[in-house]
Nucleic acid binder design. Structure first.
Length: 950
DNA sequence: TGCGCCACCTA
DNA sequence: GTAGGTGGCGCAC
């Protein structure tokens, strides 16, 4: 990487300071401000920049990755802009093995090689530092940490030292004159970390930090700590005994578990301590002058930034470094507007610039527009309304764009046209199946127009969903997409009407301004369609996901939301009375047992009662105190009945607050029903989500939960509810993906799959219920990206046992084993995972240097094809069912989707036809989506309410 | 009023 | 161990 192998420093081309060197501050003038010395932890900052900007996928037009360079340069500039450092240097590790490798073979052995995209940027970063005129410090055999530690110690009397690093291990260097600057959550913000902050964050002051790190070890460097001793235990031990040596001097006072662990650890402790200790005593010929920036090389710097198309950085350089771009290579502002898509902070042009927008507020102008629209075969449309609630919303106007660069706004305000009659004139073309409609979140427009008797169709392209399919975890709102894909700065809705109390109604906005805003949205939407469609076409399977699943589903979901579902408020009212009585009793008993009244809903107060007042043993800590969650309370229930009462209280309170009392309030005044929103562009896997209210998490497990389900009833009392759900769909998908013959065979034979798994992994025909339970957890584990830690937690067994179970499973189902492995390997190479239909999810963290983050990404990678394929299947089924219901002219309607279940309302005489149709569509959907080797089963039920139907 | 955190509901 | 949403508390603004 850093190719130079000179023994000593190599730095700026010109060691002479750009400004006359500050005189070293005189000793005695303690008041006088000391110069600042800023030491950058190079590689750590590079890594951080790389991952922080990975999502943005920054590249030059030629595809050269630039995110890390951008992030690093931006941080560097920020330091210069904000602190104007007298001394500034960047340290990097030497490429050779260091003394730590010699002492400990496995040092950093678990570090994966840096991703290719990062490696290619290292040379650029190095060039950048040189062009900035900043000294680069590298010494063979030593890591950047040690160089920084040594420099910090050496110069802390003469300077205020700031170590710029995201690495917590550096906390040990914090001292009177030494502080850390840690990159914050927001790009380009730094958090100043002094002694107090270290103590707050880690529960140990910097002086104890080495001992703390020794005890816990450092997984990222593959350095073991004392087993079973985590940060919390370590810091409380250190608080009590002051130092590691003193802890060892008092081993006998410790709890047996900690003692045993520390005894085992004793042998390697000195080595660990040496490994985690950052050296501050290297014998290196470093002088303060070596750390002084030289003159920046303007030619080299601007040439580099130009090559990498980092305009935003180039723009900051003149002010920060006091240099100007060479005349010939001046950064281009206007000359090349299209080029900026890939740069991080492209100069955005106003969205409306270069476009023609027309306010339509006369019959004559409207007549002309109508003619145009009738002759079009496709256009974009956007409604402006008085409310985000689609049932309340009144139209303020509708904008259209037939070709990029021109848009029209039909205005319904006082000075405009009459909404009702105008919409009636638009109706035939809005409903014309031959004229394709493009929009941003068309479901909203469909719902609004329904109130005006218009069934907007067909959904030819939805930019929000196209963006979602291209990258589900990117941002899908119009403003961000305009900036990202079009380098356009949009006028925001808030800028139009203001915010908070000073916000005005949409009809109070000046018509011309509203028109420009609305036209902008239609215009941008159509332009975005062009960009997004091109990207989809480059990946045909993603285009197919849009065409066959997402776009057709928009109408289906709009219809479901509009339909709504009825609930039996009287039933809920009765439940409320019962639950309230029980809660009053529980509250009394809990307060009595506590000896005082307190707020049971407050985990903080509850913790105080349980652990301070009643002195019950603590089990688990959270960030803010001791955990009082279900697992903890269940354990405590064995010691004190109050815990069981609290559990009961919690469960009742939750159901009461979230459902029994909340749902009746959410009934819509106009329809008397519950209208959820099905969000189609939220989840990373392709599932839907539901909100306002969330009807995908209605209780079912407990008795009270079942009673809540009983409250969901048909809108027409003559009708019935029909529920149809896929049986074990995710396991079947997993079996299909694995191709594992044993697993597939079990499904073909209609076996009890958990029992079958138990038989295989426990190698017996006598499967006990406990074996089945464990096997069930293993099966779930496979779906969730199985790892020993997780299974051990779920089953409450040691990690070692969990590992054995997993090993056995994988040995018995080799197809599953290799499929999971291949999935992760492929994803690591490609950067994304796919469902059977080709839906994508990017998983950049598979290359993270942080073991925990990487493992989490591996689980995501294993789960996404399974969860995502199941989501694709039910989406496909919903589309075909909706179509078939219309074709068959049935009066049944789809009400809800709950991931593997569909709920319908049906007239009694359609019940059997509906059942047959739904079953067939659901089963067929699986094979259409690629599940062809494993049979898929659907279970249906009918009843007077959701509980009976299920 | 907004936000992070904890806890807990679903598939 | 995967994917979501909501309610209440407690704090900062």
């Amino acid at each position: 990487m850093m190719g130079d192998n000179q023994i000593d420093l190599f730095g700026a081309s010109d060691p002479a300071p750009a400004t006359p060197a500050q005189k070293k501050p005189e000793r005695e003038t303690g008041e006088k401000k000391k110069p600042g010395l800023y030491l950058l932890d190079g590689m750590a900052m590079v890594y951080r920049a790389f991952y922080a900007l990975q999502q943005a996928r920054m590249r030059t037009r030629d595809g050269v990755p630039t995110g890390a360079v951008f992030g690093f340069a931006s941080s560097l500039l920020r330091i210069i802009e904000e602190y104007q450092p007298e001394y500034l240097a960047v340290a990097f590790d030497s490429p050779e093995k260091t003394f730590r490798h010699e002492k400990y073979e496995a040092y950093k052995a678990n570090r994966p090689a840096p991703p290719d995209d990062l490696i290619t940027q290292l040379a650029d970063i190095r060039e950048l530092i040189k062009a900035f005129g900043i000294p680069l410090v590298i010494m063979p055999g030593f890591e950047a940490d040690d160089l920084i530690g040594t420099a910090a110690r050496k110069f802390e009397d003469d300077c205020q030292v700031f170590i710029v690093t995201p690495d917590k291990d550096m906390s040990q260097l914090v001292h009177d004159g030494v502080r850390l600057l840690k990159p914050g959550k927001k790009q380009n913000e730094f958090e100043l970390v002094g002694s107090r902050e270290v103590a707050e964050q880690f529960g140990a002051p910097p002086e104890q930090f080495i001992d703390l790190l020794t005890l816990t070890g450092d997984t990222s460097d593959n350095i073991p700590g004392a087993k079973g001793i985590g940060p919390k235990t370590a810091s409380s031990l250190l608080e009590e005994y002051g130092s590691l040596d003193n802890i060892y001097a008092h081993l006998d006072d410790l709890k047996p578990r900690a003692r045993k662990s520390l005894e085992e650890f004793r042998e390697i402790m000195p080595l660990v301590r040496e490994l985690v200790t950052i050296r501050t005593d290297l014998d290196v010929p470093l002088t303060l002058d070596d750390l002084h920036s030289g003159k920046p090389d303007a030619d080299a710097l601007f040439a580099l930034l130009r090559r990498l198309e980092l305009k935003a950085i180039a723009a900051r350089v003149p002010a920060a470094l006091g240099i100007d771009p060479p005349a010939a290579t001046a950064t281009d502002g206007e000359s090349d507007p299209e080029a900026s898509e890939v740069s991080a902070e492209p100069t955005l042009i106003p969205a409306g610039e270069g476009s023609e927008y027309h306010l339509i507020d006369t019959e004559e102008a409207f007549g002309k527009l109508l003619e145009k629209l009738e002759q079009a075969d496709s256009f974009s449309v956007d409604t402006e309304t008085t409310s985000l609630d689609t049932f309340e919303a009144e139209l303020a106007g509708i904008s259209f764009s037939l070709e990029p660069g021109e848009a029209f706004f039909v205005y319904f305000g006082e000075t405009g046209l009459d909404a009702k009659t105008t919409v009636a004139k638009l109706k035939p073309l809005l409903e014309n199946p031959e004229i394709g409609k493009t929009g941003q979140n068309l479901k909203y427009d469909i719902l609004v127009l329904k109130n005006y008797g218009v069934e907007l169709q067909p959904v030819e392209f939805d930019t929000m969903l196209a963006s979602y399919v291209l990258d589900p975890e990117s941002r899908h709102n119009l403003d961000d997409m305009a900036a990202l894909h079009l380098s356009r700065q949009t006028v925001k809705y808030d800028e139009l009407v203001g915010t908070g109390k000073s916000a005005i109604g949409i009809f109070e906005v000046e018509p011309q301004k509203l028109s420009d805003y609305a036209c902008q949205d239609a215009d941008i939407t159509l332009k975005l369609r062009g960009e997004l469609a091109a990207k989809l076409e480059a990946t045909p399977e993603l285009l197919e996901v849009c065409r066959t699943l997402e776009f057709p589903l928009v109408r289906v979901l709009a219809d479901m939301e509009h339909q709504g579902v009825s609930i039996d408020t009287e039933h809920l009212a009765k439940l409320a009375v019962k639950v309230n009585e029980e809660l009053v009793g529980l509250t009394e008993r809990i307060h009595e047992a506590a000896g005082e009244t307190f707020n049971i809903d407050s985990p903080k107060q509850l913790g105080h009662i349980l652990f301070d007042v009643l002195k019950l043993p603590t089990k688990k800590a959270t960030k803010t105190g001791y955990s009082t969650n279900v697992q903890v309370l269940e354990e405590l229930a064995l010691l004190n009945p109050i815990a069981a009462e609290v559990l009961e209280y919690r469960s009742l309170q939750k159901l009461k607050g979230t459902y029994i009392e909340a749902l009746p309030k959410l009934l819509h005044a106009a329809t008397g029903r519950l209208h959820t929103s099905f969000n189609q562009s939220i989840t990373a896997t392709g599932r839907l989500s539901s909100s306002n209210p969330n009807l995908q998490n209605i209780p079912i497990r407990t008795d009270l939960g079942k009673e809540i389900r009983r409250a969901f009833i048909p809108s027409n009392p003559e009708n019935l509810l029909l529920s149809a759900d896929y049986s074990q769909i995710e396991l079947r998908v997993a079996a299909e993906l694995s191709g594992d013959p044993m697993l597939i065979e079990a499904f073909r034979n209609h076996e009890d799959i958990h029992a079958a798994t138990a038989r295989v992994i426990f190698d017996t025909d006598e499967v006990t219920s406990d074996m089945r339970r464990k096997a069930k957890e293993v099966n779930f584990g496979v779906l969730y990206g199985i790892q020993p830690f997780g299974l051990s937690q779920r089953l409450g067994i040691p990690q070692k046992e969990a590992k054995e179970i997993i090993d056995t499973y994988m040995a018995k189902y080799p197809g599953m084993f290799s499929a999971l492995q291949t999935t992760v390997e492929e994803a690591r190479k490609l950067g994304y995972v796919t469902t059977l239909m080709g839906r994508r999810r990017y998983v950049p963290d598979l290359n993270s240097p942080n073991g925990n983050i990487r493992k989490a990404a591996e689980r995501v990678t294993m789960n996404t094809p399974i969860q995502g394929t199941a989501a694709d299947i039910i989406k496909y089924a919903m589309c075909t069912i909706s179509r078939r219901l219309k074709e068959e002219r049935l009066n049944s309607v789809m009400l809800l989707q709950v991931h593997d279940e569909l709920l319908f309302e049906t007239p009694a005489d359609e019940q059997s036809r509906l059942t047959e149709l739904v079953e067939k569509c659901m089963v067929d959907a699986a094979s259409k989506c690629g599940v062809r080797n494993v049979p898929v089963e659907v279970e249906t039920g009918v009843g007077k309410n959701w509980l009976e139907a299920h």
